[in-house]
Design a protein around this nucleic acid. Structure first.
Lengths: 349, 349
DNA sequence: TTCTGCCTGTGAACCGATTCAACGACGACA
DNA sequence: TGTCGTCGTTGAATCGGTTCACAGGCAGAA
């Protein structure tokens, strides 16, 4: 690591304000504001003088003051579970695209599955006076979000349905997705299946577990017998590695493994390999999300695909509609997932 | 896609303000403010009454008003080239960690390598009155950033060194990294090497190209002969696929391929495979960034590793130091990269 | 008893924009 | 020449906090 230092710059004493511009241009305060917001009400000569002054002072309006007075809101907040997960970055893309079209902007934050961090960002965004928030909740308690909504802040749940009718939500049917994944493994003859899952405070973990249980029961199996559940603390590659280590340490490992998401599966496969186990011969693996590199892995990963980008787009639309004039009623939208079979489950022909 | 609608909620007429709280608690405006900011100056009884009123009205202070008056700034903006790239999300993690320690918060944005989007976010952040910004510039023109810095907004260049001495920067030596990658391919006997690169408006693309040229010349080769450069418009998997398609269409493909980053390499490998070419037998591939899944790919990817998280941490530190009291002089910090040899180059033993 | 000093609490001024009632100038029209 | 309408511009009020000079009350010291 090499460092070099330059000269310390002068920090300018104060940002130019609208009255500095007015003085420089020899007009009144209100006129400058008019140039900014209703240029057609100002004569071309005056407008020219004001614009020249703005340029000269490199004036940038103070957003705090504007928002305080006018309540003009064009910012939307999004709090995602894990920004390092390609699934969520793709969702963010969808959101951002839609917001940009509507001339709004996105403030992004990652709760890292930590309810405290989530609460911090919720508060920050509310203080900032955002139009609304798109949230993938890190906890089961939706009360803070309901309160937020009652206080007039638009809230849309992302990748999570709400038991309460008061919140809009956009989600994919995780129960069905997990059931499909497990049915696939069952159809390949597996009768005991490990499940690397995250904490039950996260809705996705609850739903995917439910889907697994449903599939097992539908096949006449007792989940207590057929499902070997391992709970890890974080839904990423590290979690997956830890899960497999725990699974193998317990002995009598099942012949198949279902992971709560693809990052977890990535870590799990890494750990399986380092223990000398072949995929899918020694252990079949199925993930969830179908992230962009799933098909390119050493053993291409069987996974459950979701309409990721669309999820973000629809969520953004919902928020804009709900927060705009007219205040649309809350809507719950649910997409259906799709199983993509590849080599890791041994099911590809 | 299934949708259900609930009841439309009441939007509350107005957020509670500090004077509502004061009235409810039967104290003056200033006292409420004191409870919020200097609780020790208020007697326990009064404090209790005020806190009860705050709770009762579920009062949340208006950040715009606070910032307008007090200039209290605890928000930092970051504009990254591509938020879907694991390299940048890891950098963002580093930034966020450091900021959280200092009780600051991060507003994240992705320019998607588009200078216009970058400009929009620069303006948005400045209007919002951020303490400073961490920017991976999408264009070679640093003038807007220099102006920003002169206006008193902290600016730190991320993954990019500045020719101007006035800006702080944190970067990795891309010229050296690319040279290492190409030297590696040369040492394996390749004499013509394809290079899938991005637009020259992006500094990383310029530097990595320079590193490649340097390595070729050092080996006594003529870059015009030995380097087959293909320029793609976006530095992601789609770009990589397009690049390989173009390369193969031109005929007489080289025996090795250096990609400007790992996502590009991912797409390139996908395209090579779909054209029936074996890696590394028909085409050796080297990427850049060593993203987390590089080692887990069908053919594990040889890549150039950078101290990603540290990059973000150091950048955040620099900004906090530069923007804090004392105004430290601008610093330029440069890390050294490291080549990680795996199977995709055929160089792993 | 009076004075001093500390502790609480008050309320007006202020941050930088937006908005709007009001005003002056000017041309049109009777 | 007098009246009216239009257009362009003005400046005060306002948003919701923070800050600070100051006032009132009470205890301890003289």
């Amino acid at each position: 690591m090499v460092t070099t230092a330059g000269r310390a710059p002068q920090r300018s004493p104060r940002r130019a304000s609208i009255s500095d511009v007015a003085q420089e241009a020899g007009v009144s305060l209100g006129t400058v504001s008019n140039v900014l917001n209703r240029p057609d009400r100002v004569s071309p000569t005056t407008r020219g003088k004001v614009l020249a002054a703005i340029e000269h002072l490199s004036f940038v309006p103070n957003g705090s003051a504007r928002q305080l007075r006018a309540g003009t809101i064009t910012t939307v907040g999004a709090i995602l579970l894990d920004i390092a997960n390609p699934f969520f970055t793709e969702v963010a893309r969808g959101i951002e695209d839609r917001l940009a079209q509507a001339d709004h902007t996105l403030m992004l934050a990652s709760s890292d599955e930590d309810p405290e961090r989530e609460a911090r960002y919720l508060r920050l965004f509310e203080e900032h006076g955002v139009l609304g928030m798109l949230v993938t909740p890190a906890s089961t308690d939706l009360e803070p979000l309901l309160e937020l909504s009652r206080r007039g802040v638009g809230v849309v749940l992302l990748d999570r349905t709400s038991p309460a009718e008061e919140l809009s939500s956009v989600a994919v049917d995780d129960v069905a997705g997990a059931a499909m994944a497990v049915e696939h493994l069952l159809s390949l003859g597996h009768r005991r299946i490990a499940f690397i899952n995250g904490p039950q405070s996260i809705a996705q973990c609850v739903d995917r577990r439910a889907g697994m249980v449903r599939a097992l029961e539908a096949a006449g199996l007792d989940p207590d017998e057929a499902m070997v559940e391992i709970t890890v603390s974080s839904l990423n590659a590290e979690g997956g590695e830890a899960g497999v280590t725990e699974l193998l340490a317990a002995g009598t490992a099942p012949s198949a493994l279902f992971c709560v998401n693809d990052l977890t599966a990535l870590g799990a496969m890494r750990a399986l390999r380092s223990h000398g186990l072949a995929i899918p011969a020694d252990m079949a693996v199925v993930g969830y999300d179908d992230v962009n590199f799933a098909s390119m892995l050493m053993t291409p990963l069987t996974s459950v695909r979701q309409p990721t980008r669309q999820l973000g787009e629809v969520a953004a639309d919902l928020l804009l509609k709900a927060a705009g004039p007219g205040m649309a009623a809350p809507q719950r939208i649910q997409f259906q997932p799709e199983l993509v079979v590849r080599a890791s489950s041994g099911g590809a022909h």
